[in-house]
């Protein structure tokens, strides 16, 4: 523990990694809460894959990959919506069609852009190599995401819980959906650095699911999810340093451990408690 703190003071890269991964943990928890409640877990996975062509094009143009990634994330979200709204295709199939197409395009473009080397970093992330400039972009993204959620919390809550009522009294529910998709894209792009495409979905879903098991209040769920996301990042980073392991993977596994603890011990939803209750009932 002391080593960790000493290392933190000594190594700039560790500070950058820690700050970035905490921010990513927080916004993943917040957006993840909306995603799992809205049944869009697959959407998170889809967007993380669909941004690949954007990354390739950004490299070709020599600009930061954030811009291309965000653009393609939004384009794919709109594409999925267009397919599922304008045909009888169900939304999970629409997601499957659109994101695989984008991912395939991304694979082609990446090989054309001669950036096969970068593909690994995009797929698996490398929080320890986060540059100062990337950290600042992550910070900006985090501020945007949190600000939107705080300012429009009322509208987001009601359209997530009861979209029909929200639409009935005149909220632009379709636009709200797109706003959430944009926030999801921003969050996903920010997470690429810490955990990469393959594991983003874990950061979105696992801490939020952990929180979901522990509370009956959506606002509390969001805060808990953010807390668990950040906690997973800190502990994960710590363990990965102590044992010289791949940080992204460790962060995800820590998040999974937290989920398992909640799954077993949660006072309301926990497996253990349920077992106990059903036994007592049996005895009565």
């Amino acid at each position: 523990m002391m080593n960790f703190i000493a290392d933190l003071q000594q190594y700039d890269f560790l500070q950058t990694a820690l700050i970035t991964s905490i921010m990513v943990g927080i916004i993943c928890g917040v957006i993840g809460s909306f995603i799992i409640i809205r049944g869009l877990a697959l959407m998170g996975d889809a967007i993380s894959h669909a941004i690949l062509p954007g990354v390739a094009i950004s490299y070709m143009l020599g600009i930061n990959y954030f811009y291309g990634a965000v653009l393609f994330g939004i384009v794919s979200a709109v594409g999925i919506e267009l397919v599922s709204q304008n045909s009888r295709i169900k939304s999970d199939s629409a997601i499957g069609i659109v994101f695989t197409a984008f991912f395939a395009l991304g694979v082609l473009l990446i090989s054309k852009a001669q950036t096969a080397t970068d593909l690994t970093q995009i797929l698996f992330g490398s929080v320890l190599s986060v540059r100062q400039s990337d950290m600042i972009i992550t910070l900006i993204i985090s501020i945007i995401v949190l600000l939107v959620v705080v300012l429009f919390y009322k509208e987001l809550l009601i359209s997530t819980f009861d979209e029909t009522m929200a639409a009935a009294y005149g909220l632009p529910t379709k636009w709200i959906h797109y706003v959430i998709m944009i926030l999801l894209t921003l969050t996903t792009v920010a997470s690429l650095q810490t955990v990469g495409v393959v594991l983003v979905v874990a950061m979105l879903i696992t801490p939020a699911s952990t929180a979901y098991l522990l509370t009956n209040k959506f606002s509390v769920m969001i805060m808990l999810a953010a807390f668990f996301g950040a906690l997973s990042s800190v502990i994960g980073l710590y363990i990965s340093l102590e044992h010289n392991l791949e940080s992204g993977a460790v962060i995800v596994l820590v998040a999974t451990c937290l989920f398992l603890l909640a799954f077993i011990f949660s006072p309301k939803q926990g497996v253990l408690w349920r077992l106990f209750r059903s036994k007592n009932k049996g005895m009565l």
């Binding site: 190594y11 690994t120 940080s247």
Partner: peptide
């Protein structure tokens, strides 16, 4: 295609 581990980056620093 290499993903530096924590000790790698410490050493590099």
């Amino acid at each position: 295609e290499y993903s530096p581990l924590p000790n790698d980056i410490k050493a590099a620093t």
